[in-house]
Amino acid sequence: MERAARSIGLTGGIGCGKSTVADLFAARGATLVDTDLIAHELTGPHGAAMAALVAEFGPGCASADGALDRAAMRARVFGDERARARLEAILHPRIRAAAEAAALAAQGPYTIFVVPLLVESGNWRERVARVLVIDCQESTQIARVMARNGLQESQVRAIMAAQVPRQTRLAAADDVIDNDDGLAALAPQVERLHQFYLRFFGATDAAPDANSIERL
């Protein structure tokens, strides 16, 4: 699919600032497809995945309004690889289908798929032209998530431990944005990559030069 081919997979560990960076690309005309938002729609009150989830995990996985009880599901699958695989078998194909439909309808010069578990999922790399990793120090991640979500450091570290290591994520990257220094430092990195993506996907007359971007 032509639209899907003109796409970037944006990922990063918890607290790295994926949504902030994605919004900066959107402000420059990129089309965003956020798989987390798709997952929330699928598992919202009477969402399209809820019947299958209830059938697989029982009515206790749903809250009174018909949405997924996220706390109960997290507790159920955390540390249980078989339960997590059953959950992913229900959600991942539906998320992929919805993401592909959104990409086909895209109007921007390129599409950014925001995929928190892009590296972990194992099949997104073949579906995007480039992988963009938002990176920061682990201490920065921990501080941000503690402030944002009110979690204890041990809880944040447990979430991070369930994701691939930082170096594994960086090894999968075509492009890297450093997000240790806040919004002011993000804008020039996003602008430079945006101009590169326009050239890379043929949205400008200038020829792409993959060597013009060293990992930022």
Rank of each mutant, 00 (worst) to 15 (best):
A173T: 01
R96S: 11
H46R: 14
G66T: 02
A48G: 11
I14R: 05
S121C: 12
E100I: 05
R86M: 15
F25D: 02
L68F: 02
A98H: 06
G58H: 09
A26Q: 12
A62G: 04
A158G: 12
P165L: 08
F200C: 13
R192C: 07
L91C: 05
F57C: 04
Q107E: 15
A143W: 07
I95M: 07
E214F: 11
K18W: 00
A102I: 04
A26W: 02
D205N: 14
E2N: 10
I14G: 08
G44F: 00
L117E: 06
A55E: 15
Q141I: 11
Q155D: 15
V190D: 07
E41K: 13
P45F: 00
R70H: 01
A30N: 03
D209W: 05
A101D: 12
N149I: 08
Q107P: 10
A4L: 13
P116E: 00
I8H: 01
G202N: 01
A89T: 09
L53Y: 02
R70E: 03
A106W: 01
R86I: 13
Q167D: 15
I14C: 08
Q195E: 12
V131W: 01
A187R: 15
A101V: 00
A39I: 03
G202L: 08
R144T: 06
P109G: 04
L198D: 02
F200L: 15
A101P: 04
R148W: 04
D69V: 01
R70A: 02
A129V: 06
L132H: 09
I90T: 01
